[in-house]
């Protein structure tokens, strides 16, 4: 079993898995607590358009997807803060357009169809040394920011108004959180795939929420579950030759069900 570690790609994927598992658990805690799953879904759709455009232009898809998803993260946060209109339909159409464009871009250049397939379902073969370096840089940035912002994001997740009364710039904090969440989604796409990246952000933290008594417990447990499920999922996908995203998400879902069962069971006593 340890032979696989001698392959560079496997080692890259496992190291990247630690980082994106951490990012998913950390940002996911806020996404779950604030009931912002739509943000993850939306960003995944837009990332698809960006990745497809990158493949068409033969430009690293990551760097095409990043500016698009960040812009959309800002736009979604703006809409959520400023408008009281029913915007679901408008957002839905916008996301559909971005997926349609993605499909169109891919069909324009059939040479890259297998690459596109990997992006949809996630593959450890996509993770390059540069991706790994960038992941580690972003992971470090997240740890540094967390020492200052965890308290504020948590406080306003509990109650925006009380946080505002206590002089926290909630609006700025929300934009920052959305942008960082967007980056963590794009970073996870290669490993997890576009189809499943939104769930990857949500399931470990949703699991953690089931069995946590405090939000700090939930954050830590979400991170641990994110990392552990990613590592085991990657190993399974290598050993059994499964799409990486599917392996990780199935594993996460099983853990979720076990936690749900445990919670129901202990609540009854």
């Amino acid at each position: 079993m340890f032979d696989i570690l001698q392959h560079n790609f496997a080692l890259n994927a496992l190291l990247a898995g630690v980082v994106v598992g951490f990012l998913g658990g950390f940002y996911g805690s806020f996404v779950v607590q604030r009931r912002m799953s739509f943000l993850g879904d939306g960003l995944a759709h837009v990332a698809f358009g960006g990745v497809a455009l990158g493949l068409l232009l033969q430009f690293e898809p990551f760097w095409v997807a990043v500016p698009f998803t960040i812009l959309v993260a800002i736009a979604l946060t703006y809409l959520k803060e400023r408008t009281t209109l029913e915007i679901d339909t408008a957002i839905g159409i916008f996301f559909a357009v971005s997926v349609a464009l993605g499909v169109l871009f891919i069909s324009l250049n059939k040479k890259y169809i297998s690459d596109a397939f990997s992006y949809l379902f996630g593959s450890i073969l996509l993770v390059s040394k540069e991706d790994l370096l960038f992941s580690f840089a972003f992971g470090t940035l997240t740890i540094i920011l967390a020492t200052f912002y965890w308290k504020r994001w948590t406080y306003s997740s509990f109650d925006m108004e009380l946080a505002k009364v206590d002089k926290i710039n909630v609006s700025f904090d929300n934009y920052l959180l959305s942008i960082l969440t967007a980056l963590s989604i794009v970073l996870s796409v290669k490993l997890v795939g576009i189809f499943l990246v939104a769930s990857y952000l949500v399931i470990p933290s949703a699991t953690a929420k089931l069995i946590s008594k405090t939000f700090s417990q939930m954050t830590i447990l979400g991170i641990v579950l994110g990392i552990v499920s990613s590592e085991i999922g990657i190993l399974f996908s290598i050993l059994l030759d499964l799409p990486t995203g599917a392996a990780i998400i199935l594993l996460q879902s099983i853990i979720f069900l076990v936690a749900l069962f445990l919670q129901k069971f202990t609540n009854k006593q």
Binding site: Q33, W150, K151, R152, T154, Y155, S157, F158, L162, D166, K167, I168, K209, S212, K213, T214, F215, S216, Q217, M218
Partner: peptide, 20 residues
């Protein structure tokens, strides 16, 4: 729906922040 204990909520009054 927020996972928290009483002392945590009261302590926000002290620090003006959620505490870790």
């Amino acid at each position: 729906n927020f996972p928290a204990k009483v002392y945590e909520l009261v302590a926000t009054g002290l620090t003006g922040n959620w505490n870790f």
